[in-house]
Design a protein around this nucleic acid. Structure first.
Length: 273
DNA sequence: AGTACGCCCTGGCCGC
DNA sequence: TGCGGCCAGGGCGTAC
């Protein structure tokens, strides 16, 4: 479940190996992973021979900006991985490897995805924001308390608001639970009902939790790996996520788990009001 | 406008 | 040992 901290970790690793490198070919093993293109051949044709100028991230999407000003977009869904493979350092492709980006001198990015919820596509740089339709970048300096206040005017549950990619980009089920615990806010509370102090705590918690998780190289509950095959470490620091029934880290109450439109939601009923 | 649910999909886990 | 059934859920489409 790569969320912002995991994708940011992937980005930081990939920057060092693909920046300035030429894409020599693209192998598509599972065509449905390539979306929005007229055909997979169109994507292959436009990517082949181009050089990666920059590797960026927007929300949970990883972006490779090519010298043609085409952008190669990867969305990893639940179980997507971008693994760096080189003649001197495995891994090799397997049945879950759906696309391979070949680089000069033998380097490859393997796009693996066990559940196949991910996707990739190529888009003109100028059309990127319109197609992504993403909200604020929570770690960007433009994401001020005022910006959060504006977003929070709706009456949706705050847990849903945090996970709404059109409002705030990059937060998923794990980090929304962790952020709300850190802020001491009940996940079912209406966004518009949050007091000024609560919004302040929420704004602070978003930055704190996401930065903490990036420092841990993300969260490996099952499938997530960095491009170099490392696991993240943030799972060892969960306050609430997947701790249903266990004791709260701040008080004697047990962590509660509820279902919220098909998603699990964890919180401390005593610390989060 | 908000909410719920099914769909896509695989592997892990449980009970028999 | 194996097999059916259920669960996990990001994002999207649809229904209420």
């Amino acid at each position: 479940m790569p969320e912002l901290p995991e994708v940011e970790t992937i980005r930081r690793d990939l920057v060092s190996v693909v920046t300035g490198k030429q894409i020599t070919d693209v192998t598509v093993l599972l065509p449905k992973m390539v979306r929005r293109q007229g055909s997979q051949d169109e994507l292959i044709g436009r990517a082949r021979g181009r050089t990666v100028q920059r590797v960026r991230r927007r929300g949970k999407s990883l972006l490779c900006i090519l010298d043609s000003l085409d952008v190669l977009v990867f969305r990893l869904g639940m179980t997507g991985q971008l693994l760096w493979s080189h003649p001197d350092c495995l891994p090799d492709e397997d049945k879950h490897t759906h696309v391979i980006i070949h680089f000069e001198k033998g380097g490859r990015i393997l796009f693996r995805d066990i559940r196949q919820f991910g996707e990739m596509y190529l888009v003109k740089k100028g059309a990127l924001e319109k197609i992504l339709q993403m909200g604020a970048e929570p770690l960007h300096k433009s994401f001020t308390l005022e910006a959060l206040k504006k977003i929070s005017s709706s009456s949706v549950k705050i847990k849903h608001l945090l996970m709404d990619q059109k409002k705030i980009a990059g937060i998923g089920n794990i980090y929304s639970d962790e952020i709300l615990f850190e802020a001491g806010i009940h996940p079912l509370k209406r966004a518009s009902a949050l007091a000024g102090k609560e919004l302040q705590r929420l704004h602070h918690a978003i930055g704190t939790i996401l930065r903490e998780a990036i420092a841990c190289k993300g969260d490996t509950l099952s499938d997530y790996r960095t491009p170099f095959g490392e696991k993240g470490q943030y799972q060892h620091f969960h306050r609430v996520y997947q701790r249903g029934g266990e004791t709260c880290r701040r008080c004697p109450a047990p962590i509660v788990r509820v279902k919220l439109s098909g998603r699990s939601c964890h919180f401390c009923p005593s610390c989060q009001k």
